[in-house]
């Protein structure tokens, strides 16, 4: 569990995080979403005690990160895949970190296998690709078998197979009851991975809600019927909001496909098409952050 209260970080010229209060619960993958410069990384750095907040607090498992007795056994972090000394081998890098928290060295071999960097474990990390760096960074985060994971853009630079692997891994970690916080600006990835969303814009909290709720807000059912007006009336009587589409089909909000189908059946009306229309996270997110985008693209 990560608790952030009134977190504010002001730099000389701008406010990176502005009075952010949010709780990240265990047992699910929480996506931290926002455009570039919205305060995602600063928030994560404050959680990890790397950056000192101007005001407010961030605690992990009830304590400030800097007061944790065994930080790597509590929290695994991946802030920057390039954060490593290029002259060390992957094994030496992980060994240094394991030793600093008295984690047994056999765990180094375990995480190397787990993230699949076995073949290059004894090569200097200078030549590692971004994707390899991500795997190494994740190995470091998992060294202490932590209860909480804080990962900044972990799929950046991974190939499709790696992205899928990362998604399943995060899913498993959350299912084991751990707290998983993942920052990303990749919508499709978030949609496939996160259960819960925390959306930031210009350092402020824009939304803190389950993924389903955000997508559900923009969900609808499209239904096509030769008796459209009769069906519309039946649906409205049953409590749905109904609109006519240009092609004559009905746009129904407030009901799912089963309910719409049942209403049609009970009213004895024929149905030619019945489709659940989900908003993509991207469109839902864009609607949410429209006003908050700091760097607007100039319309052509």
């Amino acid at each position: 569990m990560i608790e952030i209260e009134g977190l504010t970080k002001a730099y000389r010229s701008r406010i990176a995080v502005d009075d952010l209060t949010v709780t990240v619960e265990p047992g699910r993958v929480t996506g931290l979403l926002g455009p570039h410069g919205s305060g995602k990384t600063t928030t994560m750095r404050c959680i990890l005690g790397l950056t000192r907040p101007t005001a407010g607090t961030a605690t992990v498992l009830g304590r400030p990160y800097r007061k944790l007795a065994q930080p790597m056994r509590r929290v695994g972090a991946l802030i920057d895949p390039r954060a490593r000394h290029g002259g060390r081998t992957a094994y030496a890098h992980l060994r240094v970190l394991a030793e600093s928290n008295a984690v047994p060295l056999r765990r180094v071999d375990e995480v190397i296998e787990l993230v699949g960097i076995g073949p290059v474990a004894h090569e200097r990390v200078r030549g590692f690709s971004l994707g390899m760096g991500q795997r190494l960074g994740l190995a470091a985060a998992l060294l202490g078998d932590p209860d909480v994971l804080v990962l900044d853009e972990p799929v950046n630079g991974l190939d499709p197979e790696g992205i899928r692997w990362m998604r399943e891994l995060l899913r498993d970690l959350a299912d084991e009851g751990r707290t998983v916080l993942v920052a990303s600006h990749l919508m499709s990835e978030m949609e496939a991975t996160a259960d819960h969303l925390v959306v930031l814009g210009q350092g402020r909290l824009l939304a803190d809600l389950p993924m389903i709720d955000l997508l559900g807000r923009h969900a609808a059912v499209r239904v096509r019927s030769p008796q459209a007006s009769l069906l519309a009336r039946a649906l409205e009587r049953a409590g749905a909001a109904v609109d006519y589409e240009p092609d004559g089909s009905l746009w129904v909000e407030g009901m799912d496909v089963i309910e719409v189908g049942d209403v049609a059946y009970l009213s004895g009306l024929r149905v030619h098409e019945l489709t659940q229309v989900t908003a993509s996270l991207e469109s839902a997110y864009l609607a949410l952050t429209e006003d908050a985008r700091e760097y607007q693209a100039v319309p052509l």
Partner: peptide
């Protein structure tokens, strides 16, 4: 200084926050 120039300091200080 190589800790800071390489970014290793991020990882080092997350591992040993004291």
């Amino acid at each position: 200084t190589t800790e800071f120039s390489s970014g290793m300091a991020l990882v080092s200080l997350a591992a040993v926050p004291r």
